[in-house]
Design a protein around this nucleic acid. Structure first.
Length: 266
DNA sequence: CAGTCCTCAGGAGCCCGGTA
DNA sequence: TACCGGGCTCCTGAGGACTG
């Protein structure tokens, strides 16, 4: 392995790089996908050392799955996905809960809150009394690092989970902790390819059979780089395209497990 | 009718490689 | 060689459907 020096690569100190990620959520987001894959690779390396898998390799190029495993002569494809950030803007109580958390943690001063309240119209006595459209306006005026996905939202999410450490509870009980706001995965490619004759929309969805196992990285909801695994054959199919999986993937008690070995050895 | 839930389409920022 | 389509990552926002 060649030495890769962060300072050489970026000309920034680790503190300065931290600032880049803090104030540029999109840059952090792009990195996080690769970081999750690295953590998954460490899991696989460990399993190989223990002899639970014979071999693995990561993707070599576009359109490849993230990892290819060999288990007792059987090839298995493994796709790594980050779970989505908690929804903080889908209803009033979730918005309020998040804003209150920001205030409690000292991210938003009461002065800042008052100023935003003043900006969005006639002064209301409190956040709680805002209509949902005014609350939406309030959100739009928050600094980007709070409004968008990032460490603060992940911390908020983890703070709402009584037992955020995977393994402390049976997997189904662990998953049930999120029943108020289930963990989800955006299970689709990012863009359509346009060179398809006819329906180009379909290309965005994963084809049934192209992935054996999905590893869901929980970091965005628990602050841990840990994974839940499931066999893709259990996933819902797309309503319109029977040869594709639905892009809405929800982690619910049932076929998700923290034990990858159990999945691949069956 | 306000509030909620959910899906769809596409964006930001990164990169590579085929083609004009 | 420059351009641009499209690959990757995850996320947002609009808007339709539903609910109380």
């Amino acid at each position: 392995m060649t030495e890769f020096n962060l300072y050489e690569a970026t000309g920034l100190t680790s503190q300065e790089l931290a600032e880049v990620f803090q104030y540029n959520p999109r840059a952090y987001m792009a990195v996080r996908g690769a970081v999750a894959e690295k953590h998954l690779e460490k899991v696989l390396e460990n399993l190989m050392q223990r002899g639970d898998i014979d071999d693995y390799r990561s993707a070599l190029g576009d359109m490849e799955k993230d990892f290819y495993l060999q288990v007792q002569g059987k090839p298995i494809t493994l796709e790594c996905k980050n779970v989505e950030v908690i929804k903080t803007s889908n209803n009033k109580s979730s918005q309020l809960g998040y804003v209150e958390y920001l205030a409690e943690q000292g991210h938003l001063s009461s002065l800042l809150i008052e100023n935003i309240l003043r900006e969005i119209g006639p002064l209301k006595n409190s956040l709680q009394n805002l209509s949902s459209s005014n609350l939406k306006n309030f959100f739009k005026r928050l600094p980007q690092k709070y409004r968008e996905s990032g460490l603060v939202k992940y911390q908020y999410s983890a703070s709402k989970v009584p037992h955020p450490k995977l393994g402390q509870l049976p997997d189904n009980d662990f998953i049930n902790q999120f029943s108020q706001s289930p963990m989800t995965i955006d299970f689709q490619r990012t863009r359509n390819s346009t060179n398809e004759d006819g329906d180009t929309r379909r290309n965005r969805y994963y084809q049934v059979g192209e992935i054996d196992i999905v590893a869901a990285c929980l970091f965005a909801r628990t602050m841990e780089w840990k994974f839940l695994y499931a066999e893709a054959k259990n996933f819902e199919k797309h309503a319109q395209y029977s040869d594709r999986y639905s892009n809405r993937l929800r982690i619910e008690p049932g076929f998700w497990t923290s034990d990858l070995v159990e999945l691949i050895s069956t």
